[in-house]
Amino acid sequence: MRFVLASASPARLAVLRAAGVEPDVVVSGVDEDAITASLSNPTPSELVTALARAKADEVASRLNDDAAESVDTVVVGCDSMLSIGGEVVGKPGTADVARTRWKSMAGGTGDLLTGHAVVRLRDGAVVARAEGTRTTTVQFSTPSDAELDAYLATGEPLAVAGAFTLDGLGGWFVEGVDGDPSSVIGISLPLTRRLLAEVGVDVVSLWSARS
């Protein structure tokens, strides 16, 4: 069984590796803005699931086109966004946007949603699909102006959903989570396990040999 992660996220890769899975990484080339624009008033859950599906499908189609791809393969795509104050936000991209978001969420809570899509291929053909979303509530602390300036200067919050990480420098400013911590990092282990089971894959069969 070949496990393919359709994501460039080092955090998702680290979660899987720590959990005994060594995936092949094949980054999708989907236009997330175009997909978002094509949806009509999606709920936050529908949005992240649609983006995860598009990523998994795009990578699966490329594997499908590979005549040499005859291995039983499972492709997993994910997408994360933060819902706060009724607004769904992704990666801020700039320090100014990240600062504005932190000013609005400091001392409060937000819901981190991660959409998951699993596609199973056998002999180059899609034989099963499964998808779902995991929502986890995050309680934020209130960083001082100096702390926020220093955090923004690292560049870390500019490239992650919601302008924070749980497993990096942003963890200093997270008071707690109500739900699945691995989903906040980028990929929910319990949900991925369930989705793999839905397409007929036992997660323990994917575990790497441990010394």
Rank of each mutant, 00 (worst) to 15 (best):
M1H: 08
V4I: 15
A11R: 10
R12V: 07
L13I: 05
L16G: 03
A18D: 09
V21F: 07
E22K: 10
V27N: 06
I35L: 11
I35F: 09
S38L: 11
T43V: 10
T43Y: 08
T43R: 09
A50K: 00
A52E: 01
E58K: 08
E58V: 10
V59T: 14
S61M: 09
L63S: 08
N64V: 02
E69T: 04
D72A: 14
C78V: 06
D79W: 02
I84N: 00
G90Y: 06
P92Y: 03
T94R: 09
T94S: 15
A95N: 04
V97H: 15
W102I: 08
K103T: 03
G108Y: 08
L112A: 09
V118T: 02
V119L: 11
D123N: 15
G124S: 14
A130M: 03
T135N: 06
T137D: 01
T137G: 10
V138P: 08
S141K: 11
P143V: 03
D145F: 08
L148Q: 01
A150F: 04
E156L: 15
L158R: 12
L158A: 12
V160F: 09
A161D: 00
G162I: 10
A163M: 08
D167M: 09
F173C: 02
G176N: 07
G179T: 03
G179C: 07
D180S: 08
S183L: 02
I185H: 05
I185V: 15
G186N: 13
I187G: 03
L195Y: 14
L196Y: 08
A197F: 04
E198V: 01
V199W: 15
R210P: 04
R210G: 07
